[in-house]
């Protein structure tokens, strides 16, 4: 489970809004670009940013979690998509799919879709590890108070319930009559007990919210806060990445067309754009002054 932990890094030091915007641009870049060079540039940014923010392990675990789904996409796409002209494998008649021909174009398109899925998960994991959820939810409370508090509780209680579940699993193992591996019935019993425990916790939390004035809450005021060098640096980085994305879209580089025939362009302009993208994305992470709080 990914949990926010304040560390002395530029991504943690910047305000939540600009880090979310910076991550959103990375997400848009992942969805807008299909060319492997562009995807590699985004991957490079995510890896270096996660490592420099001390979140490499968390992001790595999220990527491992997403890999099976990405592989599934990469495998299923060429089996199901009937586009592309370069047939590289003929499976013949396979019910219920009918005639199945694997094309190079569908294979590449599937790989690109899988890579995008992994990158989106990695970007989300990076944001979850470096953005203070309280700061995000505090902003949301101005828009939808109850929705934001509910989301805050979900963020807070998820690791508590995970811990409850681990404790109950341990208790199951220490029963006198516990078999080495639980039966399906025992698993259901543990899940039911964790659910009951969650309801108990929910009642206690509801009482806490009552006592803290949830029922009579007023609109939360905006907190004025001066822009730090990290706020400015990461906001400028997000703006520069967005400008490069627009430039790439206007110029049509790097170009990758999958159907009906694979057309790719990996010229100097594409490489230059990718390098520039990585440089502007990572530049603010070199600012180390004032990162601790």
């Amino acid at each position: 489970m990914i949990t926010y932990r304040r560390r002395a890094t530029p991504l943690h030091a910047a305000r939540a809004g600009v880090v979310v915007a910076w991550g959103a641009v990375l997400g848009v870049a992942t969805l807008a670009a299909a060319h492997p060079i562009a995807l590699a540039a985004v991957a490079c940014v995510v890896v270096v940013a996660a490592w420099s923010a001390g979140a490499g392990r968390q992001v790595g675990r999220a990527v491992l979690f997403a890999l099976p789904a990405a592989l599934l996409i990469a495998v299923i796409n060429p089996l199901l998509v009937r586009q592309g002209l370069t047939v590289i494998w003929r499976f013949g008649e396979i019910p219920p799919f009918g005639q199945v021909d694997v094309t190079l174009e569908a294979l590449v398109a599937g790989a690109v879709l899988g890579a995008r899925a992994v990158l989106i998960v990695a970007v989300a994991a990076l944001l979850a590890a470096v953005v203070d959820p309280d700061e995000v939810l505090r902003g949301l409370r101005r828009v939808s108070f109850r929705g934001a508090v509910t989301a805050a509780l979900a963020v807070r209680i998820a690791p508590v319930l995970a811990r409850d579940g681990r404790r109950m699993a341990l208790a199951r193992r220490s029963r006198a009559a516990a078999p080495p591996s639980p039966t399906a019935r025992e698993r259901v019993a543990v899940v039911r007990a964790v659910t009951t425990g969650a309801l108990d916790r929910a009642v206690d939390l509801a009482a806490t919210l009552e006592l803290r004035g949830y029922a009579t809450a007023t609109r939360v005021a905006r907190v004025p806060r001066p822009w730090s060098r990290h706020d400015v640096g990461i906001a400028a980085s997000a703006a520069a990445m967005a400008a490069l994305l627009i430039l790439a879209a206007v110029e049509g580089v790097p170009r990758l067309e999958t159907y009906p025939r694979l057309v790719t362009d990996a010229g100097g302009a594409a490489m230059l754009l990718a390098v520039a993208f990585v440089a502007v994305a990572l530049a603010p992470l070199a600012l180390r002054r004032g990162v601790a709080r």
């Binding site: 304040r6 203070d132 309280d134 805050a152 509780l153 807070r156 916790r201 939390l205 806490t208």
Partner: peptide, 9 residues
């Protein structure tokens, strides 16, 4: 104390 804290920080 686990059920008396609502937020993350």
């Amino acid at each position: 104390p686990e059920t008396q804290t609502v937020l993350t920080t």
